[in-house]
Amino acid sequence: MQFHRFEHSAALNADFAERLIAILSEAVAERGHAFLAVSGGRTPQALFAQLASTELPWHKITITLADDRWLPADAKDSNERLVKSVLLQDKASQANFISLVTADAKAEQGADTIAQRLAAVPTFDAVILGMGEDGHTASLFPCSKELAEGLSTTADALAVNPTTAPYQRMSLSKQRLLNSRHLFLHLVGPAKLPVLNQAVAGDDVMQMPIRAFLQQPGVDIQVMFAPE
Protein backbone atom coordinates (compact mmCIF):
# COMPACT_ATOMS: atom_id res chain seq x y z
CA MET A 1 0.00 0.00 0.00
CA GLN A 2 1.19 3.50 -0.87
CA PHE A 3 -0.50 6.30 1.06
CA HIS A 4 -0.82 9.72 -0.59
CA ARG A 5 -2.22 12.47 1.65
CA PHE A 6 -3.37 15.81 0.26
CA GLU A 7 -4.32 19.00 2.07
CA HIS A 8 -7.72 19.16 0.36
CA SER A 9 -9.71 17.36 -2.31
CA ALA A 10 -8.86 19.92 -5.03
CA ALA A 11 -5.16 19.07 -4.71
CA LEU A 12 -5.99 15.36 -4.60
CA ASN A 13 -8.12 15.57 -7.74
CA ALA A 14 -5.46 17.50 -9.66
CA ASP A 15 -2.83 14.88 -8.85
CA PHE A 16 -5.19 11.95 -9.36
CA ALA A 17 -6.38 13.24 -12.73
CA GLU A 18 -2.76 13.56 -13.89
CA ARG A 19 -2.05 9.98 -12.88
CA LEU A 20 -5.15 8.65 -14.65
CA ILE A 21 -4.50 10.68 -17.80
CA ALA A 22 -0.98 9.25 -17.99
CA ILE A 23 -2.23 5.68 -17.42
CA LEU A 24 -5.00 5.92 -20.01
CA SER A 25 -2.79 7.65 -22.59
CA GLU A 26 -0.06 5.04 -22.18
CA ALA A 27 -2.58 2.20 -22.51
CA VAL A 28 -3.98 3.59 -25.76
CA ALA A 29 -0.48 4.19 -27.13
CA GLU A 30 0.75 0.71 -26.23
CA ARG A 31 -2.35 -1.47 -26.72
CA GLY A 32 -4.74 0.63 -28.79
CA HIS A 33 -7.43 0.86 -26.09
CA ALA A 34 -7.75 1.66 -22.38
CA PHE A 35 -10.11 0.19 -19.78
CA LEU A 36 -11.13 1.98 -16.58
CA ALA A 37 -13.42 0.89 -13.72
CA VAL A 38 -14.76 3.63 -11.45
CA SER A 39 -16.90 3.84 -8.32
CA GLY A 40 -19.98 5.94 -7.68
CA GLY A 41 -20.93 8.19 -4.79
CA ARG A 42 -20.12 11.82 -3.98
CA THR A 43 -16.36 11.42 -3.60
CA PRO A 44 -15.35 11.02 -7.27
CA GLN A 45 -17.67 13.61 -8.82
CA ALA A 46 -15.15 16.48 -8.96
CA LEU A 47 -12.53 14.10 -10.32
CA PHE A 48 -14.98 12.92 -12.99
CA ALA A 49 -15.69 16.52 -14.04
CA GLN A 50 -11.97 17.22 -14.31
CA LEU A 51 -11.40 14.15 -16.47
CA ALA A 52 -14.40 14.98 -18.68
CA SER A 53 -12.79 18.27 -19.72
CA THR A 54 -9.47 16.62 -20.59
CA GLU A 55 -8.34 16.01 -24.16
CA LEU A 56 -7.88 12.24 -24.51
CA PRO A 57 -8.64 9.68 -27.24
CA TRP A 58 -11.90 8.93 -25.44
CA HIS A 59 -13.30 6.85 -28.31
CA LYS A 60 -10.51 4.38 -27.49
CA ILE A 61 -11.35 4.28 -23.78
CA THR A 62 -13.96 1.99 -22.19
CA ILE A 63 -15.39 2.78 -18.75
CA THR A 64 -17.40 0.57 -16.43
CA LEU A 65 -18.30 0.54 -12.74
CA ALA A 66 -16.94 -1.40 -9.79
CA ASP A 67 -20.58 -1.88 -8.78
CA ASP A 68 -24.05 -0.48 -9.26
CA ARG A 69 -27.43 -0.51 -7.59
CA TRP A 70 -30.01 -2.67 -9.37
CA LEU A 71 -32.07 0.27 -10.58
CA PRO A 72 -33.08 1.76 -13.93
CA ALA A 73 -30.09 3.57 -15.42
CA ASP A 74 -31.83 6.94 -15.06
CA ALA A 75 -32.81 6.46 -11.39
CA LYS A 76 -31.61 9.06 -8.90
CA ASP A 77 -29.43 6.61 -6.94
CA SER A 78 -27.97 4.85 -9.99
CA ASN A 79 -24.18 4.92 -10.30
CA GLU A 80 -24.62 4.64 -14.06
CA ARG A 81 -26.68 7.83 -14.07
CA LEU A 82 -23.93 9.57 -12.10
CA VAL A 83 -21.18 8.46 -14.47
CA LYS A 84 -23.16 9.41 -17.56
CA SER A 85 -24.16 12.81 -16.19
CA VAL A 86 -20.72 13.82 -14.82
CA LEU A 87 -17.92 11.78 -16.42
CA LEU A 88 -19.29 10.94 -19.86
CA GLN A 89 -19.72 14.60 -20.74
CA ASP A 90 -17.79 17.23 -22.71
CA LYS A 91 -14.71 15.65 -24.31
CA ALA A 92 -15.32 12.32 -22.55
CA SER A 93 -18.75 11.93 -24.16
CA GLN A 94 -17.06 9.79 -26.82
CA ALA A 95 -15.95 7.14 -24.32
CA ASN A 96 -17.49 3.66 -24.41
CA PHE A 97 -19.51 2.54 -21.39
CA ILE A 98 -20.38 -0.94 -20.12
CA SER A 99 -23.48 -1.02 -17.93
CA LEU A 100 -23.79 -3.33 -14.92
CA VAL A 101 -27.59 -3.41 -15.05
CA THR A 102 -30.20 -5.01 -17.28
CA ALA A 103 -33.99 -4.77 -17.54
CA ASP A 104 -34.39 -7.91 -15.42
CA ALA A 105 -36.37 -7.52 -12.20
CA LYS A 106 -33.70 -9.17 -10.03
CA ALA A 107 -29.92 -8.80 -10.15
CA GLU A 108 -29.57 -12.59 -10.09
CA GLN A 109 -31.58 -12.80 -13.32
CA GLY A 110 -29.24 -10.37 -15.07
CA ALA A 111 -25.98 -11.87 -13.84
CA ASP A 112 -25.34 -13.96 -16.97
CA THR A 113 -25.84 -10.96 -19.25
CA ILE A 114 -23.44 -8.86 -17.17
CA ALA A 115 -20.89 -11.68 -17.25
CA GLN A 116 -21.10 -11.74 -21.05
CA ARG A 117 -20.52 -7.99 -21.23
CA LEU A 118 -17.47 -8.20 -18.98
CA ALA A 119 -16.01 -11.27 -20.68
CA ALA A 120 -14.75 -9.11 -23.53
CA VAL A 121 -12.90 -6.75 -21.17
CA PRO A 122 -9.19 -7.55 -20.70
CA THR A 123 -7.10 -6.48 -17.72
CA PHE A 124 -8.21 -3.05 -16.50
CA ASP A 125 -5.66 -0.29 -16.86
CA ALA A 126 -6.99 1.33 -13.68
CA VAL A 127 -9.60 0.56 -11.03
CA ILE A 128 -10.82 3.25 -8.63
CA LEU A 129 -12.32 1.86 -5.43
CA GLY A 130 -14.14 3.66 -2.66
CA MET A 131 -14.65 2.57 0.95
CA GLY A 132 -17.62 2.79 3.29
CA GLU A 133 -17.33 3.37 7.02
CA ASP A 134 -18.17 -0.32 7.53
CA GLY A 135 -15.12 -1.28 5.45
CA HIS A 136 -17.05 -2.33 2.34
CA THR A 137 -15.76 -1.61 -1.13
CA ALA A 138 -17.61 -1.92 -4.44
CA SER A 139 -20.75 -3.76 -3.21
CA LEU A 140 -18.79 -6.28 -1.18
CA PHE A 141 -20.58 -5.62 2.11
CA PRO A 142 -19.69 -7.32 5.41
CA CYS A 143 -23.42 -7.70 6.05
CA SER A 144 -24.21 -9.63 2.86
CA LYS A 145 -24.47 -13.40 2.62
CA GLU A 146 -22.76 -13.17 -0.78
CA LEU A 147 -19.51 -11.71 0.64
CA ALA A 148 -17.58 -14.98 0.78
CA GLU A 149 -18.52 -15.66 -2.83
CA GLY A 150 -17.50 -12.16 -3.89
CA LEU A 151 -14.09 -12.59 -2.30
CA SER A 152 -13.46 -16.05 -3.73
CA THR A 153 -15.35 -16.50 -7.01
CA THR A 154 -13.60 -16.57 -10.36
CA ALA A 155 -16.69 -14.99 -11.93
CA ASP A 156 -16.37 -11.38 -13.01
CA ALA A 157 -19.46 -10.16 -11.16
CA LEU A 158 -22.19 -11.26 -8.79
CA ALA A 159 -25.54 -10.16 -7.42
CA VAL A 160 -25.40 -8.85 -3.83
CA ASN A 161 -28.21 -8.32 -1.34
CA PRO A 162 -26.91 -6.07 1.47
CA THR A 163 -28.91 -5.94 4.69
CA THR A 164 -27.54 -2.57 5.90
CA ALA A 165 -27.83 -0.65 2.61
CA PRO A 166 -30.73 -0.12 0.21
CA TYR A 167 -31.24 -1.88 -3.12
CA GLN A 168 -29.95 -5.04 -4.67
CA ARG A 169 -26.52 -4.62 -6.26
CA MET A 170 -24.34 -5.94 -9.04
CA SER A 171 -20.71 -5.96 -7.97
CA LEU A 172 -17.48 -6.88 -9.65
CA SER A 173 -15.76 -9.67 -7.74
CA LYS A 174 -12.49 -9.29 -5.85
CA GLN A 175 -10.68 -11.26 -8.55
CA ARG A 176 -12.02 -9.04 -11.35
CA LEU A 177 -11.20 -5.82 -9.50
CA LEU A 178 -7.66 -7.01 -8.79
CA ASN A 179 -7.18 -7.80 -12.48
CA SER A 180 -5.85 -4.29 -13.09
CA ARG A 181 -2.52 -2.69 -13.86
CA HIS A 182 -3.22 0.09 -11.35
CA LEU A 183 -5.46 -0.03 -8.28
CA PHE A 184 -6.53 3.10 -6.40
CA LEU A 185 -8.53 3.71 -3.22
CA HIS A 186 -10.11 7.19 -3.27
CA LEU A 187 -10.97 8.57 0.18
CA VAL A 188 -12.16 12.04 1.18
CA GLY A 189 -13.29 13.13 4.66
CA PRO A 190 -11.95 12.91 8.21
CA ALA A 191 -14.09 9.85 9.04
CA LYS A 192 -12.32 7.74 6.41
CA LEU A 193 -8.83 7.77 7.96
CA PRO A 194 -9.76 5.92 11.21
CA VAL A 195 -11.58 3.30 9.10
CA LEU A 196 -8.51 2.88 6.89
CA ASN A 197 -6.26 2.55 9.94
CA GLN A 198 -8.58 -0.07 11.43
CA ALA A 199 -8.55 -1.98 8.15
CA VAL A 200 -4.75 -1.95 7.97
CA ALA A 201 -4.43 -3.06 11.61
CA GLY A 202 -6.51 -6.25 11.24
CA ASP A 203 -6.75 -9.17 8.86
CA ASP A 204 -10.38 -10.38 9.00
CA VAL A 205 -11.62 -9.71 5.46
CA MET A 206 -15.15 -10.81 6.34
CA GLN A 207 -15.34 -8.04 8.93
CA MET A 208 -13.84 -5.39 6.60
CA PRO A 209 -13.77 -6.49 2.95
CA ILE A 210 -11.45 -3.61 1.94
CA ARG A 211 -8.69 -5.58 3.69
CA ALA A 212 -8.76 -8.07 0.82
CA PHE A 213 -7.39 -5.29 -1.38
CA LEU A 214 -5.19 -3.40 1.07
CA GLN A 215 -3.40 -6.56 2.17
CA GLN A 216 -3.36 -8.53 -1.07
CA PRO A 217 0.16 -9.93 -1.66
CA GLY A 218 1.79 -8.47 -4.73
CA VAL A 219 -0.79 -5.67 -5.13
CA ASP A 220 0.49 -2.11 -4.70
CA ILE A 221 -2.74 -0.23 -4.01
CA GLN A 222 -2.45 3.56 -4.14
CA VAL A 223 -4.49 5.26 -1.41
CA MET A 224 -5.48 8.81 -2.37
CA PHE A 225 -6.70 10.64 0.77
CA ALA A 226 -7.77 14.17 1.62
CA PRO A 227 -9.41 15.15 4.93
CA GLU A 228 -11.81 17.56 3.21
Rank of each mutant, 00 (worst) to 15 (best):
V195D: 02
D104V: 02
V28F: 05
V121T: 13
P72S: 13
Q109T: 06
A11Q: 08
G189Q: 04
R211P: 07
A105K: 01
M206C: 09
F213W: 13
A17L: 11
A103V: 07
G189D: 01
A27F: 06
A103G: 03
S39G: 03
V101K: 07
S180L: 06
K76H: 15
S173L: 08
A148G: 10
T113A: 05
T43W: 06
K76F: 14
L51W: 00
A105G: 02
A27V: 09
N13Q: 00
G41A: 04
Q2W: 02
A148Y: 11
S173P: 04
E26N: 05
G32Q: 03
S171L: 05
L151W: 07
A103E: 09
E108D: 02
A66F: 10
A22H: 11
D104K: 06
M208K: 12
A126C: 11
I98K: 11
F225V: 04
L36G: 02
S25A: 01
R81M: 12
T137P: 05
D68V: 13
T163L: 05
D203E: 14
Q94V: 06
E7K: 09
I114L: 09
S152V: 09
E228F: 08
Q222A: 02
D112F: 08
I23T: 06
A92E: 12
A226P: 07
A27P: 05
L87S: 15
